[in-house]
Computed example of a mutant assay.
Amino acid sequence: MTLDGRIMLLAAAGQGIGAASASVPDPTQAEQELIARQPIGCLAMVEDLTPTIMHLLSDDSRFVTGQAAPVDGGLTI
């Protein structure tokens, strides 16, 4: 597998990992507000992003270059 100079961007939104930080007054409420804005109804976890990353790194996507792949649970629809 080689990237051969391809440029990739994974546009992830609504990540659940660290989404509600301790710096907000009510992290639980902040997380619920983020979830409410997500059309799919939950925040992304690493397991949700990994298949797209693996596909973009594989030879199956050898003709894909200069693209942004939105993995955002429908947020940008």
Score class of each variant (00 low, 15 high):
69 A>I: 14
45 M>F: 00
24 V>Q: 06
3 L>W: 08
48 D>I: 13
58 S>G: 12
69 A>F: 14
70 P>V: 11
6 R>D: 09
26 D>T: 10
71 V>M: 06
49 L>R: 05
73 G>D: 02
29 Q>H: 08
62 R>V: 00
38 Q>I: 00
3 L>S: 04
34 L>P: 01
14 G>A: 12
2 T>F: 08
76 T>R: 12
56 L>G: 03
41 G>Y: 02
20 A>G: 10
67 Q>A: 15
3 L>V: 11
75 L>Y: 09
32 Q>W: 04
12 A>D: 03
60 D>R: 11
22 A>N: 14
47 E>N: 05
67 Q>K: 13
77 I>H: 10
42 C>Y: 12
49 L>W: 03
21 S>N: 08
47 E>P: 04
74 G>V: 14
9 L>D: 09
70 P>M: 10
3 L>I: 12
29 Q>R: 13
38 Q>P: 02
25 P>N: 06
14 G>H: 08
57 L>Q: 04
21 S>F: 00
55 H>N: 02
46 V>N: 04
35 I>G: 01
43 L>P: 02
38 Q>D: 01
63 F>D: 04
55 H>K: 00
17 I>E: 15
10 L>Y: 06
23 S>L: 10
54 M>G: 00
31 E>T: 05
33 E>C: 01
15 Q>T: 15
19 A>P: 02
26 D>Y: 10
33 E>V: 07
20 A>P: 04
77 I>T: 14
10 L>H: 04
19 A>E: 06
53 I>M: 11
33 E>L: 11
25 P>T: 10
61 S>M: 05
18 G>P: 01
43 L>A: 00
28 T>R: 11
28 T>D: 14
62 R>H: 05
34 L>C: 02
14 G>S: 07
69 A>T: 03
8 M>A: 05
52 T>F: 09
56 L>Y: 09
49 L>D: 03
63 F>A: 04
64 V>R: 00
74 G>Y: 14
37 R>V: 03
63 F>W: 12
35 I>M: 01
30 A>L: 05
54 M>P: 00
48 D>K: 03
34 L>A: 05
34 L>K: 07
26 D>K: 09
41 G>K: 14
32 Q>F: 01
46 V>I: 10
62 R>D: 04
8 M>R: 00
37 R>C: 06
73 G>M: 06
76 T>F: 08
28 T>Q: 15
6 R>T: 12
4 D>S: 12
24 V>C: 09
56 L>S: 09
72 D>M: 12
16 G>C: 09
44 A>R: 02
31 E>F: 05
74 G>E: 13
40 I>V: 15
44 A>L: 15
18 G>A: 00
28 T>H: 08
25 P>F: 00
39 P>H: 10
49 L>T: 01
76 T>S: 15
77 I>Y: 09
31 E>R: 15
